[in-house]
């Protein structure tokens, strides 16, 4: 059986926390370590958005993180996919009525994949990243290049 197109290259992921509680962030690391071992699919965390195919955003966006999140989004080369991990990043969740929270991530940057859960299970995070592969393939077919 031929490998599906989605496995033609390894996905590099940049993780940015915009005010999350660390719950999802720890589950992201758990997804990469041996029990779930996302690295066997070539999914790897990178240290800089400039090397990333996928942005993994956790948490509601706080006011000081707003300009930084936009900047990280701009620094990520096209084609790119944005995954929001966690209920508070998807909708704001329990964090509403605050003077320092701007809102959910999709009010700040365009979001492709939402992974709800408080916090999401590692399986759900891996599923989100796999969905991002499809998104990136669509973008590539449409001729968006980096």
């Amino acid at each position: 059986m031929a490998l599906p197109r989605s496995f033609k290259k390894a996905l590099w992921v940049f993780h940015v926390a915009t005010g999350s509680c660390n719950g999802c962030d720890i589950e992201i690391i758990a997804a990469l370590t041996p029990r779930y071992d996302a690295e066997r699919f070539g999914i790897m965390l990178t240290g800089t958005p400039r090397h990333a195919d996928v942005l993994l955003v956790t948490g509601p966006v706080t006011k000081p993180m707003l300009p930084r999140l936009k900047r990280i989004y701009d620094q990520t080369p096209d084609p790119k996919a944005v995954i929001v991990v966690g209920g508070c990043g998807c909708t704001g969740g329990v964090f509403y009525e605050s003077y320092n929270v701007v809102g959910p991530v999709d009010e700040v940057i365009p979001v492709d994949i939402y992974v709800p859960g408080c916090p999401c299970r590692p399986e759900a995070i891996i599923d989100g990243v796999v969905k991002a592969v499809t998104k990136l393939e669509t973008l590539e077919k449409a001729g968006v290049s980096g």
């Binding site: 005010g19 999350s20 509680c21 660390n22 719950g23 720890i26 000081p64 329990v94 605050s98 929270v101």
Partner: peptide, 29 residues
């Protein structure tokens, strides 16, 4: 302060059981 969400401020505007859920989400570890 970059992830300062003002949790105490939010908690002082909700009933105690709602705030209990909020207190759980101060830290995920």
């Amino acid at each position: 302060g970059f992830a300062h969400r003002g949790i105490e401020y939010m908690g002082m505007r909700r009933n105690l059981i709602q705030t209990l859920y909020l207190s759980e989400r101060i830290c995920g570890i």
